[in-house]
């Protein structure tokens, strides 16, 4: 009898870390598209609304300050996540949150000024990830690089490095997405991310006029307003 009790206690001790885990996980999955085609880096040629052909070589961006709303409350997550199209593991975010009656989510593209002003960070925020300006300290919020026959830059490259957190150049964008068909429990939200919106989300950006945007300022703010429209909820599970 005594022996059994010891076993039970031991088993409980081992099981402790697993308790309550399964039910409270919400996964955000980012699904990258160009218009209605899947995004494939390097190999596929796409066309923007001005019919300029382009190839995408690099596409990554920061998601932070994720807020999940349900009827009663909102749950905030203070993580910073680098979504990188080169790395499929980075395209899902696991959140610990109540999964009942979720009606909307919100998040920021970029890094808030408080975090920007701190020293050097690790993990997704490590400047080693190539999302940091060293000559004018601050994070690059989103990066889209590729080649286009319309580009008038060297090797037909186009480089859009968008960022800026100071008040006069603030390119931070907050995205708010409503769950159209609410379910009682949601474990996964699949979010479509459309690269085409970089060129026509709100302002028209022509690669043959603008092949480079690599510093904070008005142009970066415009492109940020463009890509703020690239997210939509594809499905909930």
């Amino acid at each position: 009898m005594k022996k059994n009790i010891v076993y039970i206690i031991l088993q409980l001790l081992f099981a402790l870390p697993f308790f309550g885990k399964a039910q409270n996980n919400l996964t955000l999955e980012f699904n990258h598209l160009v218009g209605n085609k899947m995004l494939v880096l390097f190999d596929s040629t796409y066309h923007n609304s001005l019919n300029e052909p382009f190839v995408v070589n690099k596409f990554k961006y920061y998601i932070s300050n994720i807020v999940v709303y349900n009827k009663e409350k909102k749950v905030e997550n203070n993580g910073y996540y680098l979504i990188n199209t080169e790395n499929s593991n980075s395209q899902t975010i696991q959140l610990k949150t109540a999964t009942k009656n979720i009606d909307s989510i919100a998040f920021t593209i970029g890094i808030d000024s408080a975090k920007n002003a701190e020293g050097i960070q690790t993990g997704d925020l490590d400047p080693m990830n190539g999302m940091y300006w060293t000559w004018n300290s601050g994070y690059i919020f989103a990066k889209l690089e590729g080649q286009s026959d319309s580009s008038k830059a060297a090797s037909n490259y186009f480089n859009y490095h968008i960022g800026g957190y100071k008040h006069f150049e603030n390119a931070i964008q907050t995205i708010y997405l409503k769950v159209v068909k609410p379910q009682e429990t949601i474990h996964k939200i699949v979010i479509d991310v459309d690269v085409l919106k970089w060129f026509n989300g709100k302002h028209s950006i022509a690669i043959n006029k603008i092949a480079n945007c690599v510093q904070p300022g008005n142009l970066a703010k415009q492109i940020a307003e463009n890509y703020a429209t690239m997210f939509s909820i594809k499905a909930v599970q």
Partner: peptide, 13 residues
Amino acid sequence: GVHHLDAQPLAPI
């Protein structure tokens, strides 16, 4: 342009 001593060496590197 650089706002923190910890971030400074990244610029010349």
